[in-house]
Amino acid sequence: MSTETVTSLRATGARPPRRARGTGGRATAVRAAGAATRAGAALSWVVIGVGGLAMLVPFLWMLGVAFRTSPDLYADPARLWPVHWTLHGVRAVVDQLPFGQLILNTFVFAGGATLLLLLFDSMTAFALSRLRFRGQNAVFVLILATLMVPFQVTVVPVFLTLFHLGWLNSYQGLIIPRATSALGIFLLRQAFLSLPRELDDASRIDGAGNLTLYWRIILPNAKPALASLFIIQFAALWNDFLWPLVVTNDVHMQTLPAALTLFSSQSGVDHAALMAGAAISLAPLAIAFIALQRYFVQGVANSGIK
């Protein structure tokens, strides 16, 4: 607890002394205290700035190693950047792994599952928030209850189910069990509930049925929530490790995280190849993050506020 009390004290501590200064009597003491607070504030900015650098340096180093030869790296590991830039790491990872296939698999898995999930979760959220049906409460409680179930509890039976269906090492095996999520239903239900009821009444008067209301009215009005959910879900699946590891063992069906981990544990691994692979697997999310930072942050923050 002590760290945050210190920083937050200093965070807002600069203002009160300024007001007190004019009051005369305790001015000297207050000025001394003010100077101490300012020194503390400066120090805390240094700490937080160094911390911020520590967040980025590992990724810069990853990029540097990816474009560096082994002798260059072993000669001076303290250098962040290569002396001579080389593409041999990128070439090596493409040679040693079916890299194009891995990228495609990861895209199909993350993209396919996220799109299906948006469709199915929004349909369920629509029924739960805008329609009335028998057992509505029970359905909602059931969905909330599954929020508490860790994936590891279900992974063994689901693996056996996929085995019996012959779905191991297949796109449908990767995607279908991931095509709905209790959290997605919950977040979209919240978003739909915040849309005004007048929308429904107006479209009902125009003779719209449930499908029209869902597809033409509710979904277009909930675009920000859908976009946020798409981004956090896509990122989660793109980065997912245990699930693709369990469902696939053929390297041609694997996704990037599983393939990279297995690659990194081989002996005598080529550092440039490994870091090039890591950089390429990080690139799509990093670019999306920089371009769509607002949605990323909203998606993450919203899941916390609700």
């Binding site: 990724f59 180093w61 793109w238 997912d240 995280p257 981990t261 990093a286 993050f289 993450v300």
Partner: peptide
């Protein structure tokens, strides 16, 4: 926030 968007696997390897 940046390390949060990277996968645990990439973070572990780095």
């Amino acid at each position: 926030f940046f390390p949060f968007i990277a996968s645990l696997v990439v973070v572990g390897i780095i």
